[in-house]
Amino acid sequence: MSGVYLKDIRMKRESKSFADSLHAVLTAAGMFEGPKYMLSGLTGMAFKFSVHERLLPLSVSAYGNWGDEHSPGVDNIGVLTIWDGGRSRHPTFRFYQQDAIRWVKRSLDEGVGVIYWLPEFGVIHGYDDEDRIFYIQDGYSSDDRIVLYDNFGLNFTEFWYARTFGGAVRVPLETMVLESVRLALHDWDTPYRTLPNTDIGSGRLAYSYLTQALRSGDYDEGGARYILSSFVYARDEIRRYLAEVAHLWPQLAEAGSRYGELAGLFDGWSLENAQGLIGALEQAAALEERAMELFRELSRQYPDPRRDTVPRWGISSAR
């Protein structure tokens, strides 16, 4: 086969770029059915919140090591996933690049799109062996972006990353929802996801980094807008997600109302009104803390082998 072009994949930037990409790929492949906010909620992606101390735009996707961050969420919806990535300056990159070109094409041959770091995350939905190019959707433009085989993985950041998906098993809704709440708790409680660096705060700490920067006035304005609109969108996803699963446990319904209150605080938000924004963020942090307490109460009712067993993988220092 000299080429593939998967027409049914439609990636649209609304949520975090990874969730947008994931929804596009899995929906087209028939591995997930449902709206994006459900996927974002079930995979825990909606809860990821990280902020660079100067509010750089990279904050939104800097929620940790993507391999370790994305895999548990995809696993939670019962989908097999394979990824690779790393720093393109490392000597073994050339091998992994060539290997990835092969498995990306194989995935497309099987009709499954591939998530790819452009940056940000986009979806590879086609290739052409003659021109040696991949076709990629970035979710902003209806025109494809083109990446040459030779440039695969090379971009202005230090990182390359690609992820594909295999089969799927059916997981009961309660199981997925309970785990999503635990993923949320873990994100909320973990202040640094990119150790040993501490210039990016996550979860609860992300709020502090955001308000501190707004107070000092020393921040990246474009980044601030991006962080805030992504933050507001994610809170709305969480609100809708919790409304849909509220029937499972009373704590979810109550946490859902906290997120409902929270959403109202940011109607017509503007960077010009820093004081108002800081006030809203402080209230939001308190509401979210309350929601997390409810999640914790729910989590404690059931055994949690994933967290009671010390894993042999997970967070690590980048080397």
């Binding site: 696993d75 690779d84 073994t92 091998f95 997981v171 894993p311």
Partner: peptide
């Protein structure tokens, strides 16, 4: 300079049969 691929997980994860 060796290139490798690896997979791992808990045996109690629902996706284990796929892996």
């Amino acid at each position: 300079g060796m290139t490798s691929s690896q997979h791992m997980g808990f045996v109690f994860q629902p996706t284990w049969p796929l892996y």
